[in-house]
Write a protein that binds this DNA or RNA. Structure first.
Lengths: 198, 198
DNA sequence: CTATGTGTTGAACGTCGTTCAGAGAAGGTG
DNA sequence: CACCTTCTCTGAACGACGTTCAACACATAG
């Protein structure tokens, strides 16, 4: 009974996430509606609040999946690529860009969440980000064997933030923006320059 | 009469913007409420819609002011600084960071606007961004006298986006984030590395 | 004074996320 | 079988939101 309930809730959680993902992917996170979600899932509106704190909690859970897929996507591409560390960095940057262009709404949702609620960021959110950072840090450590951990961390954050900024502003408005190919160039440009330094 | 009306509307516009700016500065753009705005301005809710298309229009107008102040702030700091072009770049990056830390909510509002409405970005929005780009392009042109305009544009966008990304993720969550001093380091780091290239 | 055109108003509308009193199912007990 | 207890789920109701528009106020012209 307690087991049954738990199982049913887990199923509802999964179902809601599945439906929400489709909606967010197609229309963006702003179009997520509690009532529409419940109707598609064949449950009552209130049921959503039995398995999630609120819609923000649902979006956070959804972002968790997206984060994992993003990490996997980047890892995969860099793993099956040989080459110098700098090439790995560039491939990672391009993989990040590709993920963003392939899943613009899901990717955007990662950063659009209303974090202002209580200023509380879930632990796993930071963990996922840390995993992404770790992927970047590896080639950097290879390039700078003698660098202090603190300095490596600085470089990692700098590079990730820079690439993120390039992708973000590049995709922000197609109108003002540049074609994807130019964004790729910008990433290559940045990382190449960065790696030529002392 | 037509004059009178126009004047009164202009005054209401200014008054609403003033009040909205205080609210956004203190509570963030998400806390802007039509009713509260009207009450503080001593007018009817409907009056807001006589002088602005909707709340998004008001926020866009507010962002216009912020954009100008941001540009002025960055220009001022870089103008009164001599030094090599690379130092100007660094000063500009730091000025951008300072503006963002001094006015976090106003700065954030610049990028949080719901642009998705019709995909229509006001012309002056792009013009203001262009002005910011121009400020950056100047030292870059000095550093690379022989660079093609297209290449300069690429560098400009790359650097602006990178610094923006560093500031954005750096301030995103104080919890996960790094202290401001570290963000400054990251900007210096990036721009120095970038300028040492060929 | 009345008629006319123009500007302003705020109650009303539709929609949203969220809640919670009550319906309903399931299990235990005699 | 009937009855009670316990836990779960439901969906109408709530309050707040942005936005609208019929009704009002008022200045001017005849």
């Amino acid at each position: 009974m307690a087991r049954d309930t738990e199982k049913r809730r887990a199923e509802l959680r999964a179902k809601l996430l599945e439906i929400a993902e489709i909606e967010v992917r197609e229309k963006g996170v702003q179009s997520l509606r509690a009532r529409a979600l419940a109707e598609q899932a064949g449950c009552a509106v209130g049921a959503i609040y039995n398995v999630f704190d609120d819609l923000t909690g649902l979006i956070l859970a959804l972002n968790g999946r997206t984060f994992q897929r993003l990490g996997a996507s980047v890892s995969e591409e860099v793993d099956q690529s040989g080459g110098a560390p700098v090439d790995k960095l560039i491939i990672m940057g391009h993989a990040y860009l590709r993920f963003a262009t392939d899943n613009p709404n899901l990717w955007r949702a990662l950063f659009d969440v209303e974090m202002t609620a209580d200023g509380i960021v879930p632990v796993w959110y930071l963990e996922e980000l840390g995993r992404l950072f770790a992927i970047i840090a590896a080639p950097l450590a290879q390039m700078h064997p003698k660098a202090e951990p603190a300095e490596l961390d600085l470089m990692t954050r700098t590079l990730f933030s820079s690439v993120h900024g390039i992708v973000l502003l590049g995709l922000e408005r197609r109108i003002s923006g540049v074609p994807t190919e130019r964004i790729k160039e910008m990433i290559t440009f940045l990382l190449t320059r960065f790696s030529e330094g002392p």
